[in-house]
Design a protein around this nucleic acid. Sequence first.
DNA 1: AATACTCCTTAATCATGATTAAGAAGTTTA
DNA 2: TAAACTTCTTAATCATGATTAAGGAGTATT
Lengths: 229, 229
Amino acid sequence: MSLDLLSIYEHATFLISIKKSFLQKPYFYTSRSSQMHQNLVAYIHRYVEMSDTEIEVFNRYLIKRKISKREHLIEAQKETCTARYYIVKGCVRLYYFDEKGNEQIIHFGIDNWWISDYESLVNQLPAKLHIQAIEDTELLELTTEAFEQLSKKLPKVERLFRIIMEKTTVAFHNRIAYMLSSSGEELYTTFINANPGFCQRVPQYMIASYLGMTPEFVSKVRSRTKNNS
Amino acid sequence: MSLDLLSIYEHATFLISIKKSFLQKPYFYTSRSSQMHQNLVAYIHRYVEMSDTEIEVFNRYLIKRKISKREHLIEAQKETCTARYYIVKGCVRLYYFDEKGNEQIIHFGIDNWWISDYESLVNQLPAKLHIQAIEDTELLELTTEAFEQLSKKLPKVERLFRIIMEKTTVAFHNRIAYMLSSSGEELYTTFINANPGFCQRVPQYMIASYLGMTPEFVSKVRSRTKNNS
DNA sequence: AATACTCCTTAATCATGATTAAGAAGTTTA
DNA sequence: TAAACTTCTTAATCATGATTAAGGAGTATT
């Protein structure tokens, strides 16, 4: 069972397997227009072919957004999620409050992930998930209405999102596989080994929540591994 | 947090919300041609509009398959997964062996689910998952090659699968949410309340594996709840 | 500079659920 | 019909990780 089982960079990992240079040179395309857009262009080209004209059409349906650290993109109960969001740069968390009132993080969104509260989006129900920025974050918003219009003009957008959702399913399969077969200590050490950079961007208690353990336990594991090495 | 959080009928639940009569009258469409096909027709019509001609085209790319109880559809390591499978009737499990040699069930596939080892399918890698019939099962196989040809002829097939994968993502979000916030006892009792019929079709130890607990613990929980009621 | 946050650590106690081991009941196969 | 599986149960012991509580270090805010 390889380390990247618990990688939150699941998407990126697969991108790399197609064209390694992408993540190493993320600013390659920046000369022509704004970086935000060209970041997504590079992403799209990993999955479907799209002409400059088509990219231009796609771009017209996107709304640039910035949210600052701690700001919410979506607040559960208060609203229905009406868009898919592409994270150009930054980090968000998707979380909810369980019956005992504890925050539970069910997903992190980082650069090059598309995120949404899909249950709210697909079924047009009030959101159950909060989506909050952990860092200042740049996003591109594709509303459901925009998506529907765009996919009529550009049917291959459906293909793009079909592929994205399949990649997402792979990530969830792997995460559940690892959750089922590992102890808490294994989960934590595997996670930090798989995502060393990420763990310095995010408070420890959020990683604990994502992995389904208490911050105190993470602390214990850390001190144990420190003493053993 | 509603009961259907742990329902393996997640897909079906959403189908019902669009047209309740579907699952109550699953044989409504059977007069015209074989039941297998018409079962899928009804499914497709929940998500996209498709003319009789288009349905006929779609159907030409499908291969009918039957596997009997205990037979494997996919065996990990031995092969690469090259198809998506629609379950017309029956039940399969997706599982793998962890480093300690334990079977871990990461997903059940039942009537009206599309299943696959998506990691193997998407990245063309040897399968890591075994897919095995728990009951005699009727399937429709859509190979990757057939899918590619079909989606060129019928672009809306991409839309169909995009929607299916979004529904799947919702199911995984909810499953992870519940895994993170519930005790083993809660997980088990919620699961059997959400899927009473299913639990009579499947051995208890498989449910234990799916929920990430030992069969002995399930047994203990059952005797506890028996005595309390 | 003082106060209030936010985040992390440590340690004692406790409970959930795993492990181990034995056996029983039901179902196949020979 | 006996032998061999498969599945489930029970109970004793043990370990992982939660809970509780206290304190400390770093960072914002006034």
